[in-house]
């Protein structure tokens, strides 16, 4: 059974607030939001590097944040001063952002909104299968001139 639009909008707003808080608190640069949309066609919107979190408990589905390398490079430079991070560092950064953004949502949704450890990947893995019975919301954001996608799929 799919969630109602009102429920889904409310959940999306929690993630939007969580993303905004992440960037503002750690970088003092606000993220800007483009118009979110419901994705109905097949396939996923992905940038180069993605951190994905599985959701279980009261809600089931996933959330991922996907961005190109330059956004993660900027964050790593701000956080630890590394100018030329490895691929491993970039993937780690992708996983950590998605973990924090999803975990912070539990402040509102409670401990039964259970999240997995991040799964990180580069590009579009062949084995990535998204269930048919989830509604997928895409929230495009801009931080420090870098575009990223926050994608939420919930039953």
């Amino acid at each position: 059974m799919k969630t109602s639009k009102a429920d889904f909008d409310a959940t999306c707003n929690l993630f939007i607030n969580s993303v905004n808080n992440y960037f503002r608190h750690l970088t003092e640069i606000d993220s800007k939001l483009n118009v979110p949309y419901l994705k109905e066609s097949e396939g996923l919107v992905l940038k180069d590097y993605t951190g994905m979190i599985g959701i279980s408990g009261n809600r089931k589905g996933f959330v991922y944040i996907s961005a190109n390398r330059d956004m993660y490079e900027d964050l790593i430079k701000i956080f630890i001063g590394i100018e030329d991070p490895s691929d491993e560092d970039i993937l780690d950064m992708a996983g950590e952002i998605s973990n924090v953004v999803a975990g912070n949502v539990r402040a509102n949704l409670g401990a039964n909104f259970m999240i997995s450890v991040p799964v990180v990947f580069q590009g579009m893995p062949n084995q990535l299968k998204i269930p048919d019975d989830v509604s997928i919301y895409v929230i495009p954001i801009i931080w420090n001139s870098h575009e990223a996608y926050v994608v939420i799929g919930l039953q």
Partner: peptide
């Protein structure tokens, strides 16, 4: 130090 921001945790 955790991302899990619920009070119960």
């Amino acid at each position: 130090i955790t991302a899990l921001a619920d009070k119960l945790t």
